[in-house]
């Protein structure tokens, strides 16, 4: 059913004039700088596919006809969908040139091969959300305003945002390296399978911590070092580091 729906949506999108840019790539990371409202999904393929659903009317830019937008680094749109895409060692780098060409908050959809990780950074008001699905390689995110939604991920990852909320649903918890989710003014909500092994570090000076896990709290000198604002402990006898922190909002750690 899901696939059918996706197919239909994609067909509709094609009719509506979706635009694509493809580039063959394998391994390394996809580095995204200042790209608005991105949806990234890993798939079984060997190309990175960037697409936007429908381009803005270019009425306002008649004066710019025949000219190309260019950014402060002198980079230009080499994809026709408002991005400058280039190889950067073993990585692939995409930078948004000027304002997003997408309509409303629809933004970019990007498909990446399963062998790739993600390094996303965004610092302005203009990106409302970042959605990442099905990615099993390392994810690194650093934003100021963007909400972050992760689905069917495994870690390792390090996510930080100043104003955004973070919501993450884990398919499993990769035991190779740490997972950290940090927000200053937003909430952090993580759902992990109930059998996941992890060493926890949860902290929210002004919020509350909620969980349905049975956390074994670390002891120092026989004293339980537990306050409701800061919890260090383990679930299922411990494992990889799972760090959830919010400055002012709640933290939710739930069984999936």
């Amino acid at each position: 059913m899901k696939y059918l729906l996706t197919t239909i949506i994609m067909c509709v999108a094609l009719i509506a004039g979706a635009q694509e840019y493809k580039v063959a790539h394998n391994g390394g990371k996809l580095i995204l700088e200042g790209v608005d409202d991105v949806k990234i999904e890993a798939y079984d393929g060997s190309e990175v596919i960037f697409s936007i659903n429908s381009k803005k009317d270019h009425k306002e830019s008649e004066r710019a006809a025949g000219l190309k937008p260019i950014n402060s680094l002198g980079l230009e749109d080499n994809t026709d969908i408002g991005l400058s895409v280039s190889k950067d060692g073993e990585n692939l780098k995409a930078i948004q040139i000027g304002q997003c060409m997408c309509r409303d908050n629809e933004g970019y959809t990007i498909k990446i091969p399963k062998s790739m990780g993600i390094d996303y950074s965004h610092s302005t008001y203009d990106s409302d959300h970042l959605r990442i699905k099905n990615v099993n390689k390392e994810i690194v995110v650093s934003t100021n305003y963007t909400n972050i939604n992760l689905e069917d991920v495994t870690g390792p990852m390090s996510i930080k945002t100043v104003y955004g909320d973070i919501e993450a649903k884990f398919a499993s918890l990769n035991q190779n390296s740490s997972v950290s989710l940090n927000s200053v003014y937003g909430f952090v909500d993580a759902a992990i399978p109930s059998t996941s092994k992890a060493r926890l570090n949860l902290r929210t000076p002004y919020g509350q911590i909620y969980t349905d896990f049975d956390i074994k709290v670390e002891t120092t000198d026989g004293m339980r070092s537990l306050t409701d604002k800061k919890i260090e402990g383990t679930v299922n006898n411990g494992g990889v580091d799972l760090i959830l922190k919010s400055g002012y909002e709640n933290i939710y750690l739930r069984k999936k």
């Binding site: 200053v184 003014y185 937003g186 002012y248 909002e249």
Partner: peptide, 10 residues
């Protein structure tokens, strides 16, 4: 008893 930024977010 919090920062102005926190009030804005609230």
């Amino acid at each position: 008893n919090c920062s102005e930024g926190a009030i804005k977010a609230k």
